[in-house]
């Protein structure tokens, strides 16, 4: 998962991210009934494991963000799922910090929520063939928006960081492509094998 480490961002950006993050979290937790906790937890765990897989691209390899896919499979509950993934990364691997958690949550969860609201209902009604393209859109959009949000939070922190942030944004271009293609195949697969996994707009896994 792409995240900004502690120590780069300025205080206003950190506070803004924390406030927005808590608001999103509160809203989505209210929409998660207790009966859906096992389903959400297992899907979140599966997505966490998937994000550790390294995918070869050209001479290098990448790890997927999967936030677009999270939005499509989990809906609005993707927000706490992403938070948990970030916390577990800090605990298991020592990446990321607690103060920058809000900004990182917003950068990853805002695109996921957008995919959940706009693209999930479309995929629910689409054929498997068409879902590939909608999945591609969701994956690409997720990575693209996260890239833009991540670089803007760096740019807003210190004007001196703007040129470096532009270079960082460029590294998101290949990720966007790969994220889109893999999410497309995943969504097409789910639509053929277990279409009940992708629910309509207000649906919850119970």
């Amino acid at each position: 998962m792409a995240h900004i480490p502690e120590g780069i961002l300025s205080e206003p950006v950190l506070i803004g991210g924390a406030v927005l993050g808590v608001a999103m979290l509160g809203y989505s937790l209210k929409r998660m009934p207790a009966e859906s906790i096992p389903q959400t937890a297992l899907l979140a765990a599966a997505l966490f494991v998937s994000s550790l897989v390294s995918i070869p691209v050209g001479v290098s390899s990448v790890h997927l963000l999967l936030n677009g896919l999270m939005g499509i499979v989990l809906g609005i509950v993707a927000v706490p799922a992403i938070l948990i993934a970030l916390v577990l990364q800090a605990v298991f691997f020592g990446y990321g910090g607690l103060v920058v958690l809000g900004v990182n949550l917003v950068n990853l969860a805002l695109p996921a929520v957008l995919c959940a609201i706009v693209i999930r209902p479309l995929i629910h009604n689409a054929s498997p063939r068409k879902s590939f393209w909608l999945g591609l859109l969701a994956g690409g959009l997720g990575a693209c928006m996260t890239g833009i949000l991540l670089t803007s939070s760096i740019m807003l922190s210190d004007p001196n960081l703007i040129p470096a942030a532009k270079i960082i944004l460029l590294t998101f271009v290949p990720l966007m492509a790969i994220e889109g293609v893999i999410t497309g195949f995943t969504v097409g697969f789910i639509k053929r094998v277990a279409p009940e996994l992708i629910l309509p707009k207000e649906g919850r896994h119970v």
Binding site: L43, A46, L47, V181, I182, T186, F189
Partner: peptide, 19 residues
Amino acid sequence: WRTFGWLVGMLLVRSFERS
């Protein structure tokens, strides 16, 4: 990439059944 896409899909389907 197709294989990895299906792999992620398979993980999700199995975790959903388990859940």
